[in-house]
Design a protein around this nucleic acid. Structure first.
Lengths: 111, 111
DNA sequence: TTTTAATGCAACTAATTGGTTGCAAATGTA
DNA sequence: TACATTTGCAACCAATTAGTTGCATTAAAA
């Protein structure tokens, strides 16, 4: 089964879980309280997130606290890096275009 | 059917298409040449990417050029923003911890 | 010790996904 | 006009996904 961070983050419930956990570690029951589905369904999402190292577990008696492995999120950020470069190039091109228009307002725009 | 940018980006073939298109606009046939699957399968991916506004089309005779809507990629970047704040907090905490250790090397660490 | 609570795991199911083949439409070319 | 090329769309299919119910295990509490 495919199990990478992009597939993990594709599901809206899992994104909500990530956002929830980011604030503080929580138990499966506490997490499930926030969703309109069974505890087992939420637990499956937790398993998927754990399997791709986005979540880590900490056993406390019979409770398990799940918390976010924030560093793993940086993988998405890293993937975006290549596009960030393109943003900048396009922005600079636009910037250059705008200043060209400004500097030549009297002749170029009059054409 | 669910069709958001996260689901679009979850598929590795679609991520490859995005990276390919980011450099220059291409036709479906040219894109399909880069993959070990039928043209129609690639076209389906193009449709999904187009439906969530990641790609735009430009008809040139009987050819269609697909190019990347780079701005749409910023939606992922925007979602990451909330976690970037957490990175910084954690980094600053670590930074503070390290300087505490450094400044109190002689007493605190001796305990 | 018995009972209750928290959790994970397995089996099942309906919907979705990602691929296929086949075909029709539209444009360019001989 | 006749033919080849580029493309999109529909029907089909196998695998995966996201949910369900039921049950076993373990730890805390009565």
């Amino acid at each position: 089964m495919r199990r990478d961070i992009f597939q993990a983050v594709a599901d809206p419930t899992r994104r909500a879980i990530i956002a929830l956990i980011a604030v503080q570690a929580m138990t499966p029951n506490a997490i499930a309280d926030n969703f309109d589905m069974t505890r087992q369904a939420v637990s499956k999402h937790l398993r998927i997130l754990t399997e791709c190292d986005l979540l880590k577990q900490e056993q406390k008696g019979r409770e398990i606290y799940y918390s976010l492995e924030i560093d793993k999120m940086k993988e998405i950020d890293h993937w975006l890096e290549q596009f960030r470069k393109i943003w900048e190039i396009r922005f600079n091109q636009l910037d250059h275009l705008l200043s060209t228009i400004k500097n030549n307002k009297n002749d170029e725009l009059a054409v």
